[in-house]
């Protein structure tokens, strides 16, 4: 019961020696500051959304396709719904979906990668082949194929983007685990008779998780773009729910009379992807030793 070497807490990953140090480096990075600021702004917008005057689905039939003004800041759409309220509601949907995909791909990637790295044998060989297969194919095409087969829908869209997104993270976790198995602290823990599950939890997972989280952040911008793009094609959230890609799709109906319908969701997507890109650039600069 009492382990000779305390396995909890584990040994910090070599690559990122101190998470606090990484945060300090990041906070000095100009791109990171801008990106983080944008991300905070978008999150705040998504959080305060429900407390705004107009609801995203409230129709104002007297004011259909109204231009931006004091009453409706970004105008109204074809059903008289307040475009600003829908943009804010869309932030919840789009960013929520991106965060969900982020969480799913990271968890699946770490779990499968660590398991493959530790178990070895046929499982590891099979998983590695599957990973290489997925990484060698265009992800947008695969996501389109999965949604195409399952049918349009928000759940199917998230499933499709997750299926195509976990492989890179699993590959990273797998090679990290294989490397970690040779580390002295893991050998010592094994000799001390600590259970495999505790070794994985205490010595391997923390480092693998940090690496996978960084790598997943690098892909966040592409995730938002992919989700919005497929939703724009009408394959994601179904009406009347507000989602940026879907709102842009709707705006096409009124492009001659109400071009302002593009502003809200368009700026939203650009801001979200810019935030993700700037943060991931900063992360890459701060964690890649060759660029220090």
């Amino acid at each position: 019961m009492t382990a000779v070497i305390p396995a909890t807490g584990g040994v910090p990953a070599i690559e990122v020696a101190r998470p606090g140090g990484l945060l300090r480096t990041l906070s000095r990075h100009r791109g990171f500051r801008v990106g983080a600021g944008l991300a905070v702004l978008l999150t705040a917008l998504a959080v305060i959304g429900p407390f705004l005057a107009h609801g995203p689905d409230v129709t104002d039939y007297v004011n259909q396709l109204a231009p931006p003004g004091a009453r409706h800041w970004l105008g109204t759409d074809g059903a008289g719904r307040d475009e600003f309220a829908r943009t804010v509601a869309g932030a919840r949907t789009t960013l929520g979906a991106a965060v969900l995909v982020f969480a799913l791909t990271t968890v699946i990637g770490i779990a499968v990668g660590t398991a493959a790295g530790f178990l070895g044998g046929i499982f590891e060989a099979g998983v590695s082949r599957l990973i290489d297969l997925l990484l060698g194919l265009p992800s947008l095409v695969l996501a389109l194929a999965v949604v195409g087969a399952l049918g349009p829908g928000f759940g199917h869209l998230i499933l499709a983007v997750t299926i195509t997104g976990w492989a890179g993270l699993a590959k990273l976790s797998r090679s990290y685990t294989i490397g970690a198995r040779q580390r002295p602290d893991v050998t010592a823990a094994r000799m001390a008779g600590i259970r495999t599950s505790r070794i994985i939890a205490g010595h391997v997972l923390p480092g693998a998780a940090v690496q996978a989280l960084i790598a997943a952040t690098l892909g966040l911008g592409d995730t938002v773009l992919g989700l919005a793009g497929l939703s724009f094609l009408g394959l994601g959230v179904q009406p009347p729910a507000a989602e940026w890609g879907g709102m842009l799709n709707d705006s096409q109906l009124y492009d001659t009379v109400a071009p302002w319908l593009v502003i809200g969701p368009g700026l939203g997507i650009i801001a979200a992807v810019t935030a993700a890109t700037l943060i991931s650039d900063a992360l890459r600069d701060s964690t890649d030793p060759s660029r220090a």
Binding site: L225, F232, V273
Partner: peptide, 23 residues
Amino acid sequence: TVLMVVTPGFLIGLFVLDILVVH
């Protein structure tokens, strides 16, 4: 180049159609 990467193609397309062509 960052702006080019973060702006999705359909948004550029809508901009071209809405603003440049129609208006």
